[in-house]
Design a protein around this nucleic acid. Structure first.
Lengths: 241, 241
DNA sequence: TGGGACACGTGAGGC
DNA sequence: TGCCTCACGTGTCCC
């Protein structure tokens, strides 16, 4: 992994030390640094243990501290790389990729896959069909449009009532959300609303959650009306044939 | 982005040159390399243009070639990083992540999201319900289990017939696939089969596609039987209420 | 042998 | 100040 002969590096380190670019402390040679440069070397530098642990941080020269910091930094960076790569490996497993698919291609596939899956769930989650027998609120996590707007889809299925649309509009208005498109289907006293909603740049993603909660409370408001009491027994998910 | 003062680097480069660790060619100083180390410097090294393009690859000293290769290498590596990062940015958009979400957290979210979405599509795609009126073959891209087996779900919905199961078993056997679990629901002369299938380590992902094709041909075999002729007029996706 | 992919160590910048 | 993240240039391996 690392070069077998460290002669050049030794030379380099000696130069750096002589010119005060690094500090070799009281130990004569920066063994800790050498170790990383020559991991496969069989020289005796490995035996030097400089104990950079925090317990002995006291009585260290500033130079030692700098060297210790460098070592910490190096190791932290390695852990960071490992963390990222382990996630990439998980994605390889999830996408059925060969374990030697390169990072860029893998990520390209991930992007494509996430798009497909979002598309599928969007199509499958009963949107744009007749209202179901169960009350439902779905806010599908959207996507940022090219101009930075957040576009997403919200679906609401519940008992129809006269003041539903005013209530809905009030919610959207108070959250400063804009309705790009709305589909309404009513059947047998129930309604399904599918809204395409835009949030401008100054919205955080939290707006989506606010909306979800507001719609749920809207739905509970409907349920608490006396009209829904007689229906409650029907509010089950039915397998319809 | 890069250090403002290059005095140490100059020193370093001079040392490297003197010891033959790098080559400075006929120009006295490795300006091209310096440029990357001191991009914000206002010295005149920027004005040196060494023309490392392939058109003048002829009559270059070996040292020049090495330096040119280093430059190529550097630039290629930069392109590679940009490619990876652009995909990461796309994922940030797709997952509604803040543009300054760090890479590791982003990838963790991507893993989680892909798992959720796969789960959702798996649940939503009509599996484990009664057979539909339309013929369907679905092979959901699976996941590698901890022991390296590829586990995936296949769903088949078609006209029921006596020799369907033997045919199905034949297909699975010929592809060396193992059925971990099978669910069958029949209704009104139609059948829905949901299979959980395992492919051992020596299978490539291609087996999934082979299976998909085999199941489709199985389905066409059913349709070509005279029994299905009278049904064909019914083979439409119905919106059932 | 040249190009692509990767891990590495390091400097810079943000809290 | 110390810790964390990133981009960078480089050495190495592989095709």
């Amino acid at each position: 992994m690392q070069p077998e002969n460290c002669s050049e590096n030794s030379q380099l380190y000696r130069f750096l030390a002589e010119n005060g670019m690094i500090n070799v402390g009281a130990y004569g040679f920066p063994g800790a640094a050498m170790q990383t440069l020559c991991t496969s070397s069989s020289t005796s530098y490995h035996n030097n243990n400089y104990h950079f642990e925090s317990s002995v941080i006291t009585d260290m020269t500033p130079q030692d501290r700098a060297l210790a910091a460098l070592k910490n930094h190096k190791e932290a960076e390695k852990r960071r790389r490992e963390r990222i790569n382990s996630h990439l490996d998980k994605l390889r497993g999830l996408l059925l990729c060969n374990s030697k698919t390169d990072k860029a291609s893998l990520l390209a596939k991930v992007v494509q896959r996430v798009r497909e899956l979002k598309q599928q769930t969007s199509e499958l989650s009963g949107l744009e069909t007749f209202p179901s027998e169960t009350d439902e609120v779905t806010v599908l996590s959207g996507e940022y449009s090219s101009d930075g707007q957040l576009i997403f889809k919200a679906s609401l299925c519940c008992e129809d009532r006269l003041d539903l649309m005013p209530d809905l509009n009030e919610i959207l208005k108070s959250l400063h959300l804009k309705t790009l498109k709305a589909e309404m289907v009513t059947l047998g006293g129930r309604i399904r609303n599918v809204l395409i909603i835009a949030a401008d740049k100054d919205h955080s993603v939290e707006s989506v959650h606010f909306l979800q909660n507001a719609l749920k409370s809207l739905l509970e408001r409907s349920n608490s009306s006396e009209k829904s009491k007689r229906r409650r027994i029907l509010d089950r998910k039915l397998v319809i044939q």
